[in-house]
Design a protein around this nucleic acid. Structure first.
Lengths: 254, 254
DNA sequence: GACTGTGAAGACTTTCACAGCA
DNA sequence: TGCTGTGAAAGTCTTCACAGTC
C-alpha cells in the first residue's frame, strides 16, 4: 500500500477526489457511517466501477461485503488532497468575481484562507473584504512578503492576466488559479489551472446547437452531467443525496 | 466533407474550439491573415497535431504550405459553436457571482445576451443589472414566458441549486450552467455543465501537496497548463500571442 | 520548402466481470 | 449474500510520421 502512494494518481481521478470528498462530508453530516461504491457513485454523479478504481488508487480502504467507512475514507481523501493543512490564498482583482471568490465557502474553509487581496482601482484599495484589506497591486512584493501565500488567484480582466501572472511568479507564487479567459505563459515549475466561464457557456451553446449529437454522458468533474433521471415529474423537489437545507436559503446568494 | 459534420465531434475537441475561436479573434484583430497549426497551437496552449486533428473534424479548411485563413476559419468555428446566433441567458442568483457573470464579456457578447436575472433576496429584486431588472424567483414562470431563455445559469448557493434546477427544468429550460458546488439531478434531455471553483482550488492544492508527481502537461481547456517556458527572466512581460493592451487596464476588473 | 490531413501507433481511461473476502 | 479490488477488455484521445498539396 505504501508504494501505491508513489504511483501517479491519474488526473481524472484527482479531479474526482474533491467531488467524493464533498459527498462524504454530506454523508457524514447526515450521520451515515458506511457507504458502498454504488451509493457514493450516485452522490458524486459517476458510476460505481469508477469510484472503486479511483479509491483503490489511494489505498485499500474498503471492506468487502460492507463498503467504505465514511469518516475514515473522508480523512484519507482529505489528507491525499492536502486539505489537512491550511493553504494561504492571495487574490488579484477584487471586482465582483474577486468578491464572490473571497467570500465563498470554498475559499474560506479550514483548508483555504484568503490572506491577501489586491487590485489596481484606487476606489477598491483599502476596502476590507472577508477580513482582508485590499492592497494595491503595486505593493505586491510587500504583500507577498507579509502573507506568504502559496496559491495565487487571478480574477483580473484578460488583458491584465499575463502581467499579473508574471508578477506573481516573480514574487515566488508558483501555483495559480486563473479565472481570466487568457492562456498564460509561465515557467514550467509554476502550476496553472484555468477556470473559464464563457468557455463553458460556449460548450453548452455547441451542444444546444447540435441536438443530434449524443452528449458525452454522465459527468466527470468537468464534463457534461446528465444526472440520474428523475423522470416523470421533473419539477419535484429532488430526493437524492443532496443537502436538504430549507429553501429559500438564509445565507446570501454569493 | 458534408458527412464529416455528421460525425460526432469528440468532447475534448469541443472544449478546445472556444479556445481556438478566442485565439483567432485576437489574431484577426491584429490583422493577421493566415496562421499555421503551429502558431495557432502556440496561441491556444496546445500542440500542433492536436490543432490539425481538431480542425480536420470540422472540415478541410487549411491550405497545405500556407496554413489556415484566419477570417474564414473564425467564421467556420463560430458557426460550428453556434455563435452565429444569439443565445438568451437567464441567471438565477444575483449575488457577487451573478453580477460578475451578468457583466462579463463572455455573457454579454454578440452571441450571448442576459435576458433575465432572478433572486430570492427582496433587497436585490428590482435592481437593474446589465440592463435587466432582477425579478423574484417566485415569478420564474412569467419571466421565462416573457424572455424565452435558452440557457439557464445557476449562481445560487449549493443548498438551493437542486431546487432552482428543478424549477428551471419545469419551465422548460433544458440547458443549464451550474456554478454551485452540487451534483444536479435532472431528466436526461436536460444538458448540464458544471463550473466549480473550489474543486479547482482543491486540485491545485493536491498538486502542490504532491510536488513529486509530474503534473499532467500542457493544458487542454480544463487541464493544468504549463506554458512555453519563458525561462531565464520569469517576470518579463511575456511575449507570445497575447493581448498587448497597456496595463493597468482601463476597464473595471469584474 | 512549408504545411495540411490523416491513417496507424501509442497512451491513457473507463468499463466489465469476477475472484476473493466479510 | 453483498461488496471490494483488480486484471483484462474495450473505448477514447493524443501523438507520430508521412503522403500529398500548394
Amino acid at each position: 500500500m505504501a508504494d501505491r502512494l508513489l504511483r501517479q494518481i491519474p488526473e481524472p481521478t484527482v479531479v474526482r477526489l474533491p467531488v467524493y470528498q464533498r459527498a462524504l462530508v454530506a454523508l457524514a453530516e447526515r450521520g451515515v457511517a458506511t457507504v458502498s461504491s454504488a451509493e457514493l457513485a450516485d452522490a458524486a454523479g459517476v458510476n460505481a466501477a469508477k469510484v472503486r478504481k479511483d479509491l483503490s488508487q489511494l489505498g485499500t480502504y474498503g471492506t468487502p461485503g460492507t463498503g467504505y467507512e465514511v469518516g475514515f475514507l473522508l480523512t484519507q481523501i482529505s489528507r491525499e488532497l492536502g486539505l489537512d493543512r491550511e493553504w494561504r490564498v492571495l487574490i488579484v482583482g477584487m471586482g465582483n468575481l474577486g468578491h464572490a471568490l473571497a467570500r465563498s465557502r470554498g475559499f474560506q474553509s479550514q483548508s483555504f484562507r484568503v490572506v491577501a487581496a489586491l487590485d489596481v482601482d484606487p476606489d477598491r484599495v483599502g476596502e476590507v473584504v472577508a477580513g482582508v484589506r485590499v492592497a494595491h497591486l503595486g505593493d505586491l512584493a510587500a504583500v507577498v512578503c507579509e502573507t506568504s501565500p502559496s496559491i495565487g488567484v487571478i480574477a483580473a480582466p484578460a488583458a491584465a492576466a499575463q502581467d499579473v501572472c508574471d508578477r506573481l511568479v516573480h514574487e515566488g507564487v508558483n501555483a495559480i488559479l486563473n479565472f481570466a479567459p487568457a492562456i498564460l505563459a509561465a515557467p514550467n515549475e509554476v502550476l496553472i489551472r484555468q477556470v473559464d466561464f464563457s468557455l463553458e457557456l460556449q460548450v453548452l451553446a455547441f451542444y444546444q446547437a447540435h441536438p443530434s449529437r449524443d452528449v458525452p454522458a454522465t459527468g466527470d468533474g468537468s464534463g457534461v452531467t446528465e444526472a440520474p433521471a428523475q423522470s416523470g415529474v421533473p419539477a419535484a423537489r429532488a430526493g437524492g443525496a443532496r443537502d436538504a437545507t430549507g429553501y429559500p436559503s438564509d445565507e446570501p446568494w454569493s
